[in-house]
Design a protein around this nucleic acid. Structure first.
Length: 274
DNA sequence: AACATTGACAACCGCGTATTA
DNA sequence: GTAATACGCGGTTGTCAATGT
């Protein structure tokens, strides 16, 4: 028993799009915009396609501003870095690379980059499958949903002012964002992470208080971990090129930092609903 | 020349999530 | 509160051209 199809497939075209279909779709969207509902679009535009198919064709092929042709080494480098940081979140990665779609990048990754990296001995660490992550997240959130809502009702939760709540949030947040993925992604050569900033005489400076092995130490809190990543991101030495064929560039560095900041913001905003 | 294999990428499928009724 | 619906995403498949045998 599967989910019912998104639309009746009977009498609908499948496979490659013709120039006429492209034209009809482009004309319709030019005139009415994208936000008019994909489901009803085919009928209105005179297309014998399902809405999903129209959306995909538009987003991946017809939409103005899309880049065609080969990827630059800059783009390669950025994709590799983002993959190490984000895993196969192609839409997120695509959002950072102007003119490229998630499908583009996904295909390019599978057909070019992966082979190239393997050949260079830089095969990226596999991230846990997204489906798995999502299931775990869904289970966790559904289990916590009721309790959290009840507490919210009672006004118990106030922006993390409650230490216990903060601890819970930190735990859930950790599960959700897979901190080790992020830490390993930004740490040079993907070593088990240990902050390398302790001073030579054995005393620790402020930064080196984070000298902990994240794999072994479960007691470190999420906020400390963010802090550790922050230090890494701010330290140019920790952002040596993951692959060897391009120079490190500041733009990528800033971008990774921005992403991290966005994540932190998202976590902060969403944490109360765990 | 004919067939097999490979590479590239467009398109499809099924699922989770957000929104609406 | 919940069921139905639509959308967006990642994974996978299909198709076709290029290349090899």
């Amino acid at each position: 028993m599967g989910r019912k199809p998104c639309c009746s497939k009977e009498g609908l075209n499948k496979g490659a799009w013709t120039a006429k279909e492209d034209m009809l779709l482009t004309e319709y969207i030019k005139e009415h915009g994208e936000g008019t509902g994909w489901r009803s679009l085919p009928k209105k535009a005179g297309l014998l396609r399902c809405g999903k198919s129209c959306r995909l064709r538009w987003v991946n092929y017809l939409k103005p501003g899309l880049k065609r042709g080969s990827f630059t080494s800059e783009e390669d480098d950025l994709i590799v870095r983002l993959y190490n940081l984000l895993g196969s979140r192609w839409s997120l990665i695509a959002g950072r690379i102007h003119g490229r779609t998630d499908n583009d990048i996904k295909n390019y990754w599978n057909t070019h980059l992966l082979k190239k990296l393997k050949a260079e001995g830089n095969e990226p660490r596999r991230h846990e499958s997204l489906a798995k992550q999502t299931r775990r997240r869904t289970n966790a959130s559904s289990q916590n949903n009721k309790k959290t809502k009840e507490k919210k009702k009672k006004g118990k939760i106030e922006n993390g002012s409650n230490i216990e709540e903060r601890e819970q949030v930190a735990k859930k947040t950790e599960e959700q964002w897979h901190m080790q993925d992020a830490v390993q992604a930004v740490s040079p050569n993907n070593h088990n992470f240990t902050s390398s900033s302790s001073s030579q005489d054995g005393t620790s400076n402020a930064a080196s208080t984070s000298e902990v092995n994240l794999e072994e130490n479960d007691s470190i809190g999420i906020y400390e971990k963010f802090q550790v990543i922050d230090e890494l991101l701010l330290d140019d030495n920790c952002l040596l090129p993951i692959n060897q064929y391009t120079e490190f560039n500041t733009e990528s560095h800033m971008m990774l930092k921005e992403i991290y900041e966005e994540y932190f913001k998202l976590v902060s905003e969403n944490s109360m609903s765990f």
